[in-house]
Computed example of a mutant assay.
Amino acid sequence: MSRLQTLDEARAVDHAMEIFWTKGYDGTSLADLARDLGLAPGRLNLAFGDKHGLFLRALERYRDSQARSLAPALLAEGLVLPRIRAIMLGYLQLAAEEAEPRGCLIANTAGEALPGDPAVADCLAEVMSVVEDGFLQGLEHAVQQGELPEGIDVAGNAAMLTMLLQGLQVLVKLDPDPLRLTPAVDAALAGLDAARLRWARPPA
């Protein structure tokens, strides 16, 4: 019987991602993972090598299920800037609804596993690159459809939005009232909104 027949690897990776996201790498044991998945630890070792190997797969799954969804969301029909704001505020709302906000798996892992783990560092860098590229594509789309002026620093603003998103994901774990950060999001986005308004205003 093949490994894929004896173990649904996609399900295992999805479930492991949720456990690592909630408990962290150090707070999750191979026994925890095996018990929650209903598998013997040896089966996990056979499929993924060890806990670290499964963790790398979980980070890749986070990249594909979370980070890669950003660009399509911003490239949908309609204005881009309101969707960027909605994405930021959506994280605040989610944290406000969680009993114990867990923030972002990438930000959590950066604080827990770095420096000292080159393989994890490479995974995190790739995820952040995907997020930044998603914002970049969204801002370029905003320029193309006349929402933002040509010549605006889309690369610099994409990096700023990536920093804002990651900063929010850390703060929501510490602030008892995550929605309190809404004005901070608006202040950070004010530069882009001002550029939009200047571009939309006809010359005197």
Rank of each mutant, 00 (worst) to 15 (best):
L94H: 14
I106T: 10
R85W: 10
T109W: 04
Y25N: 04
R196L: 08
A204H: 14
R43E: 01
A119E: 14
L56P: 05
V143N: 05
R85P: 04
A119C: 10
V143R: 09
L4F: 14
G27V: 00
L56W: 01
L4Y: 13
V130L: 09
V130S: 05
D14A: 14
R201Y: 11
E140R: 15
E112V: 05
R35V: 05
Q5L: 13
L46N: 10
D8G: 08
L92P: 04
A67F: 03
L139R: 09
A125I: 06
R43F: 03
L105D: 02
A188R: 09
A86V: 06
C104L: 08
R102Y: 05
M163A: 15
D117Q: 10
L37V: 07
V130M: 01
K51W: 04
C104R: 03
R102V: 13
T182H: 11
V185N: 06
L7D: 06
L174Q: 14
S2T: 13
A110G: 13
V172G: 04
L46P: 00
A155L: 14
P178G: 05
P183D: 08
M128F: 11
A96M: 03
P82Q: 08
A40V: 02
L161S: 03
L30T: 00
M88Y: 10
D133T: 13
L197W: 12
P202N: 13
L165P: 05
L70R: 07
R102W: 07
A86N: 15
E140I: 10
L7V: 06
F135D: 02
E97Y: 07
L192R: 06
G24V: 01
D36W: 00
L124T: 04
V131L: 15
S2N: 14
G146V: 06
D14L: 05
L92C: 11
T22H: 02
F135E: 02
N108C: 07
R35T: 02
Q169C: 12
R198I: 15
A195C: 09
